[in-house]
Design a protein around this nucleic acid. Structure first.
Lengths: 340, 340
DNA sequence: CTCCTTGCTCGAACCGGTTCGACTCCTTGA
DNA sequence: TCAAGGAGTCGAACCGGTTCGAGCAAGGAG
């Protein structure tokens, strides 16, 4: 079942079989036909390891994301799905690597052992040693997210600053004055996750600009934490009338906390944030939010990576996305509740 | 940066370096130390493709799941996460392959080109050509789910029949008489997805046993479909007081549909089903459900696969899990609403 | 002092592909 | 009639590891 066996049965040399398959040199029709017959009969497929060894390409890309200790969010799922699908269209397989830092065994396997031709990194931090490491090695990689110095990198990112600010403006326009911010878990913020930092930043600046009274919170990636977070918010400032969240996984808990506190959404409390549209629609009322275009981001990341693999010294490219806020049903004018 | 270079710098032969690294033959301390120095200095790591070619093992397992056309559900995410993590503990990488049938290009790549040592299959159908194909080839694979003839296979499954029945009994015990069943999408049911079939089966039989009036529905994997499905249910039989669902992704929509129809959960309508615990807790009220132990299933699938890879002719093994129903807050006695 | 182990190392072959250079025909044009 | 050139094929080398068989030196037993 190897190329030698095919060659023997077709009565030609191994190299001829190789050329017949790759088309890199002419092969007569007769020979090609004969070889094809044998291949079809035996169901032969060239061994990927041998091929990778010979031509230095694995036809595999690595998808690097942090280990699941902190559960995955729905957004990550969407990234994974879209990356796999887009990669398949280019005939690339996707190898999953759970690693948060460049010293992870998994990360070292991927790179050092040359298991992949390129990598896509998720959950980027402002100072990210994985990104720095890959850049230093000039290893083909594309980040989903931006570090603090994104100028010379390959990435596709979301303008969390602008999105969080847009949420603030949306609420301010509706007349809200006391607004809370529900961020990702504190541990991620401290680790420097870019979405958490830039989102917080955009929120804070825009709120200052609009003269809002704000409080910011970190919240675990699960429903129970979301519920607890709302309790804290309402305890700290019962006059709070709206919140902005980046925390998709806590969303259900936030809603529950509000319901249990007797705040009706959107009548007496508005909720908005940055969340993948698919998940924003699962809550009731549906969340008015800047929809994270996860599918598009994954696809574009693959496009960029493939381009970089094809042109090793192409100049860095990137995409910064800033989707508009989708108006759904979770925000409303401030004071609507108290005046009724 | 290859083994020859290491050997040259350490002043030994390539084979000695190999033995020093693998420990398969004794190497003197002096030599070993010298080799290690050179390796550390150069940051050498053996090339995975070459190693795979030489010893016939890729140290990679394939995770086969249907293409994303039908969006992924949270449960699938949990499977992926736990499989990746469990595999990493055994020093295996995970290659993702989106393919529904054994003729998919992606599937052929995985197997024919020997990219993986073994495979884990998700979203099993009662008649599953992927499973049959792998069994015929005696290729090491473990299914997450059971086909119609699971006796001689390797799998870890959920007893959907029993779980759906348990949901029915739970509702019947609470006095419900008119119960609806919300299944996965019709297209998946028709394709023969085992969870959809066995769940429907368990539901139907248990309902007959308890003398319940039932209707069964298929429902798309998204919130909008869930909402539409509830509307249909209440139109078809307004006296319905409870539903059982297997459809995690539609859950938010089901709740919304009930709320919009003015049915309070659990006062006038009970909801239960088979859903991963983590997602059952995101809805309000939290869902009383048979919690799919996705993390455990993924881990066990990897355990089984590793065992099978280690003992090529070990007899088939499997795990059938039937977690108990977790009582949360979405079910209550029938008639509670009408009597109040 | 020989003979046999045992410990350690080396060269060569192999895994299954790709690719380069060379060789043989056969055609075409001068 | 012969040189030039292109089509088609082959053998050999190579990618970077692993593994087998053999050789050599030191040490212990007889």
């Amino acid at each position: 079942m190897n190329i030698g066996e095919i060659a023997r049965r077709a009565g030609v040399s191994r190299s001829t079989v190789s050329y017949a398959l790759s088309g890199k040199r002419p092969v007569s029709d007769d020979t090609r036909r004969k070889i094809q017959e044998v291949i079809d009969e035996l169901g032969y497929r060239p061994n990927a390891s041998a091929r990778a060894l010979a031509n230095g390409r694995t036809s595999t890309i690595g998808l690097v994301f942090p280990p699941a200790g902190n559960h995955y969010t729905g957004m990550q799922l969407d990234f994974i799905g879209s990356v796999v699908e887009a990669a398949a269209a280019y005939d690339y397989d996707v190898l999953l690597s759970p690693s948060g830092v460049d010293s992870d065994r998994s990360f070292q396997r991927l790179l050092g052992e040359r298991r992949v031709d390129g990598a896509i990194l998720m959950e980027i931090r402002l100072q990210d040693d994985r990104v720095d490491h890959l850049a230093a090695l000039d290893f083909p990689a594309v980040a989903i997210g931006r570090t603090a110095h994104p100028e010379d990198g390959w990435w596709v990112g979301l303008d969390h600053t602008a999105l969080a600010a847009a949420c603030v403006h949306h609420l301010a326009d509706l007349g809200h004055h006391r607004v809370a911010f529900v961020n990702r878990p504190e541990q991620l913020l401290r680790a420097g996750y870019e979405s958490a930092h830039r989102g917080l930043d955009g929120f804070t600046k825009a709120a200052a600009e609009r003269g809002l009274a704000v409080r910011t919170y970190c919240c675990g990636d699960d429903a129970a934490s979301g519920q607890a977070c709302v309790e804290r918010i309402l305890r700290d400032d019962p006059a709070t009338t709206a919140l902005v969240t980046l925390n998709e996984a806590a969303l259900g808990g936030l809603y529950r906390g509000l319901a249990q506190a007797g705040r009706h959404v959107p009548r007496d409390f508005s909720v908005t944030g940055v969340v993948a549209g698919r998940w924003a629609e699962t809550v009731t009322p549906q969340l008015t939010a800047a929809d994270v275009p996860a599918e598009e981001m994954g696809r574009r990341a693959v496009d960029l990576l493939v381009e970089r693999l094809g042109h090793p010294d192409a100049p860095p490219r990137h995409h910064l996305l800033a989707p508009p806020i989708s108006l759904r049903a979770s925000t409303g004018p401030a004071g609507a509740g108290t005046t009724s």
